[in-house]
Design a protein around this nucleic acid. Structure first.
Lengths: 251, 251
DNA sequence: CGGAAAATTGATAATTGTCAATCGTCGTGG
DNA sequence: CCACGACGATTGACAATTATCAATTTTCCG
């Protein structure tokens, strides 16, 4: 079981979900909202550094991130790690494992994370009774696919500097539509080791690459996290124009 | 419109689908089979080298590959190309574009390809009336996600030799469960430029890397395609044990 | 005030890319 | 039938990028 280190806490009613009011997410019908409210079984919190889902596990649950940052990754037998994508509030995790039986990747918390807990076995109820939500689930899977396509393009064909710029710009953009930067400062809770394992670079070369971005005044490191000072500049280096996602479903 | 160069040909009835009898695919109920039969509007064929779907297009259709090989890719503005994945019989293409409105990647035929044509706007009928098929669609999207995860791990963390071995072993495995190698010989219709653009390597280095695999007697180039002679050997080099997929849905 | 984890740096090595040819195959037109 | 051109495969020399090694230094946290 993969929930060993999770702490169950009280459940925020879906009607009061802090994410739903964001203009970024699609509206629910009252009917859907009620279903999801029942679909959500509880809420758990995880500390930074803990593993939320482990490759090979057969979890009975899936989760939506309510708060905090995490990352999905895979490892080779000799320990090399590749971070596949990051998860942040509104992201559904564990769907892949729920469908195909066994998790093919692991997920770890980057910061303290709060999760809504759903039961895998109730998915069939969702598919039978709520076709719009079922559609949303496919949409969500397709969105993840699109992000992976972008990452693959980046790792396969961009230089180290372009890659780093793309990654940071993308993270900043995803976070900003979630209104995650209340402080006005755009801070990503990540270490250089995480970035290296995402970019497919060594830690040393990652450091030297980030140094170039620092020298240009585009980012700054502090408190084991990265502050984005010039998102537009990063996008220019990457040759990437942020995706103007309209509304997006979530569960 | 993206169907400019497609040739419409007669429609093979789904009841006589040559793929369905394969042990690799899940069974349909008679009800589902009838729906899919109506869902399928026609059949088109595409020549090798032609583009099936273009990034940015808003296709009204989605397709299932009935025969032939193709590949999904993205390009940077300066022409650098990254192949994201390959498509082969049984694969659904265009789903991502159908959901999010616009294709985010292109798809090109590697060999002559035959496609079943479906209409995007009838997806809602599917979701409302056939929850099991809706579930399958999500499953299919999750499967693509899983393959991308593997590719990302490979490009990010494996050496050139390991990467090439992984890619060829993976393609051979996917093709073999489709019974694509009737001749007894496992031949992949691909050029070294395609492999290079998949592996994130230059064409020259790809050539030198493949040379090492040839020298070991694991592969052989002939007629602009790659014959796999020692699939197990490739898997060993890659440190990858083929996924033992059980039955898999398709539409 | 430690001690551990993260960030940084310089030197050197390994990997991979670029350039510039050459060769082979195959289809086409003379 | 052969010359020709296009495309793909191949090769060697050299350059650029990235990795590895081996410290330090800094920051964080108890």
């Amino acid at each position: 079981m993969s929930l060993v280190n999770l702490k169950v806490i009280r459940k925020t009613p879906c009607e009061l979900c802090p994410l739903r009011p964001l203009p970024h997410f699609r509206e629910f019908t009252p009917d859907e909202l009620e279903f999801v409210s029942h679909f959500k079984k509880s809420e758990v919190s995880v500390e930074a550094g803990q593993i939320i889902l482990m490759e090979g596990a057969q979890s009975a649950h899936l989760f939506t991130v309510l708060a905090g940052w995490g990352f999905r990754y895979k490892m080779l037998e000799d320990g090399r790690r590749q971070i596949l994508n990051y998860v942040m509030p509104g992201d559904l995790i564990g769907l892949q494992g729920s469908l195909t039986g066994e998790m093919q990747h692991s997920i770890e918390a980057l910061s303290p994370v709060t999760l809504c807990v759903f039961e895998k076995k109730e998915l069939s109820t969702l598919y039978r009774g709520y076709p719009d939500l079922a559609f949303d689930l496919t949409w969500i899977a397709a969105r993840e696919e699109r992000m992976l396509d972008e990452n693959l393009l980046s790792i396969g064909r961009r230089s180290a500097l372009e890659r780093a710029a793309y990654l940071l710009a993308m993270l900043a953009q995803r976070a900003s539509v979630l209104d995650l930067f209340r402080s006005g400062r755009c801070v990503i809770p990540i270490t250089q080791q995480h970035l290296a394992d995402t970019l497919g670079l060594s830690i040393v070369h990652t450091n030297k690459t980030l140094r170039k971005l620092s020298d240009k005044g585009m980012i700054r490191w502090a408190e084991r996290s990265c502050e984005i000072l010039d998102q537009r500049g990063l996008e220019d280096i990457a040759g990437w124009k942020g995706v103007g996602e309209g509304k997006r479903p979530f569960i």
